[in-house]
């Protein structure tokens, strides 16, 4: 095993859960998720020689994973589903601390998932990274916009979600 093989193996082992998370968000079925996972692994291998260490390795892997996911075409359905994996903790992180006081049921979580799916594609990308608990700096490095812009966008999205969840806009 040469040094590139070793480095690759190590990167995949260390970042497997991150790659799997991205696959879960962007692939509609487990088969698609597996296909996407394979495609990401190939692109990580292809990109390995370009990695200069300018950003953290995990950020670099996320970039490849998100870009590959965006380019990934679901062969059965033309459009990819964007799947949100929410629990009360993540939901509270999105709309604020009073989440648990007001709503803790499955329907509300489903509502939250629906609301996230109605966001624009750019907002969805950002929210998928927020749900992964990445910092604004990491998100800015992955998406390619400034950190302050990331913070502004996250604030706006959270406000929108909070308004919709609390405003009784949808029957729960």
């Amino acid at each position: 095993m040469n040094s590139k093989d070793k480095q690759y193996k190590q990167i995949i082992e260390e970042n497997q859960s991150r790659i799997r998370s991205v696959c879960r968000y962007y692939a509609g079925t487990s088969d698609d998720s597996e296909d996407l996972y394979q495609e990401i692994l190939i692109n990580v291998w292809r990109g390995l020689e370009k990695f200069r260490g300018d950003s953290q390795l995990s950020t670099w892997v996320y970039r490849i994973a998100v870009n590959t996911a965006l380019s990934f075409v679901n062969k059965k359905n033309k459009y990819l589903n964007f799947n949100t994996y929410l629990d009360d903790g993540k939901a509270a992180n999105l709309v604020g601390e009073d989440w648990e006081e007001s709503i803790v049921h499955e329907k509300q979580l489903e509502l939250m998932s629906n609301l996230i799916n109605q966001l624009s594609v750019v907002d969805k990308i950002i929210m998928s990274l927020v749900l992964e608990e990445l910092s604004s700096k990491e998100i800015s490095e992955i998406v390619g916009i400034t950190e302050s812009n990331v913070r502004v966008k996250i604030h706006r999205i959270k406000e929108e979600l909070r308004e919709k969840v609390k405003g009784g806009q949808y029957d729960i």
């Binding site: 964007f82 949100t84 979580l109 594609v121 750019v122």
Partner: peptide, 25 residues
């Protein structure tokens, strides 16, 4: 808990999935 939701804005002209699909082709 997992939810698999169909995107509601599938017909939007700037749907990224659609754009990326066209781009790839």
């Amino acid at each position: 808990m997992t939810f698999n939701n169909q995107p509601k804005n599938i017909e939007e002209p700037a749907n990224l999935d659609q754009v990326m699909d066209s781009l790839r082709k």
